[in-house]
Design a protein around this nucleic acid. Sequence first.
DNA 1: TGCCAGGCCGGGT
DNA 2: ACCCGGCATGGC
Length: 212
Amino acid sequence: MYHKLYQAFGPQYWWPGDTPFEVAVGAILTQNTNWRNVEKAIKKMKQQKMLSAKAIHEMPAAELALLIRPAGYFNIKAKRLKSFVGFLSNDFRGSMKRMKKDAMHPLREKLLNIHGIGPETADSILLYALEKPSFVIDAYTKRVLSRHKVMEHDRSYDDFQGLFHSTLQRDVQLFNEFHALFVQAGKTFCKRRVPLCDECPLDKWKAEDGIN
DNA sequence: TGCCAGGCCGGGT
DNA sequence: ACCCGGCATGGC
């Protein structure tokens, strides 16, 4: 599937973001939200010089909420950003570089303990901000895999992640590209209302090989 | 004009 | 261990 997707879509150059900190902020802001809305919020934070751990740490949540308004759920996300930055400040003196020195598994547990950070957000930060090989499972990944009968849609996050962790080398670049390709494939061919689509490169591939 | 978008939490079975 | 409602803007 990886090679077929890569042939169809090419390299994805993920994650969009200039710094590890910006990637982490984007990971929180994009929770159940269109990325284009997140870009508006990040742009505004940059304009106001508020895209830093120190600035967010010292800013009241209500004020931060106004800044990130276009990203939706802004009151909740303002608190989530502040809880992440609070953790970053307390444990790593506000430095993503210092956070990166931590081992992956203990760090994942710490991230999951932060209020407002669940498995997908934690793995997005680990993989795309800190370059640690933790596979990201999102709605598109689950949709593409279940549509193609790799795994039932109602299985858990860990079940889906285990699929990749148990069968692939723990390769950061591979995990990066593979997940980004699932998102691209999902956006292009796996819309919610369309059960299957014969233009999908995976469908064409399976048809050629007589699979299912 | 509804439907959808790169989830997570809290309260209830 | 699930299930569900709430959270909110902007694009098509």
